[in-house]
């Protein structure tokens, strides 16, 4: 168990469709989970305290809040390889259609004038840290995810 490579899945601000797509792999995901230790995956398992060193960190979602940006930086420190999956992580996608200068007006439209947002911007992961691999798609196709999982040993040994 201890010698298995460690994978972790992190979600920033998003619809969670990308990580659900992994569940669409069904038995293949289970087979995969036998060979790796899943060190963190908020959607399906509790936290295990401190996050250890990770071999491959999978990040999905748009960097919208300071907490998102901070998480991305911490994950980069801990991970040998950072993979951005889906259009939100890759490009910022729909939330990024609202430009920074229009943000206050958009926030007031949705929440009223008095509201203090958590949102600072809507950015792709690579604008915060170095990204080693990007997987496109909204969400990425199952075959893309499967090929990626099969290719993880190469990614770790790079």
């Amino acid at each position: 168990m201890d010698n298995k490579p460690r994978i972790a899945i992190f979600d920033l601000t998003d619809c969670e469709g990308c990580e659900l797509q992994f569940l669409g792999l069904k038995e293949k995901l289970l087979d995969f989970a036998q060979d790796y230790e899943i060190a963190s995956w908020r959607l399906v398992q509790p936290h295990k305290g401190d996050l250890p060193e990770i071999d491959v960190a999978i990040i999905q979602g748009t960097v919208i809040t300071d907490a998102d940006a901070e998480l991305v930086r911490k994950v980069r420190e801990k991970a040998k390889a950072v993979v951005a999956i889906g259009e939100c992580a890759r490009t910022g996608w729909i939330p990024a259609w609202i430009e920074k200068e229009n943000q206050p007006k958009a926030v007031a439209y949705v929440y009223g004038d008095q509201y203090k947002p958590h949102r600072t911007a809507a950015l792709p992961v690579k604008s915060i840290v170095k990204v080693d691999l990007e997987l496109p798609g909204c969400p990425p196709e199952l075959t893309v995810l499967e090929n990626f999982l099969n290719n993880i040993p190469n990614l770790i040994n790079q």
Binding site: L12, T13, C15, G17, T62, I64, T65, A67, D68, W93, I94, P95, W97, I98, Q103, K105, A106, V107, Y109, V110, Y111, P117, H118, R119, A122, C138
Partner: peptide
């Protein structure tokens, strides 16, 4: 603590026929 994606503001000025594609997300 989820970040604000502001979908309602995103929709403003979009063609209505695009709304189902956008809001699915």
């Amino acid at each position: 603590t989820e970040g604000e994606r502001l979908f309602e503001a995103v929709l403003l000025g979009q063609n209505a026929s695009r709304a189902p594609f956008i809001t699915s997300r």
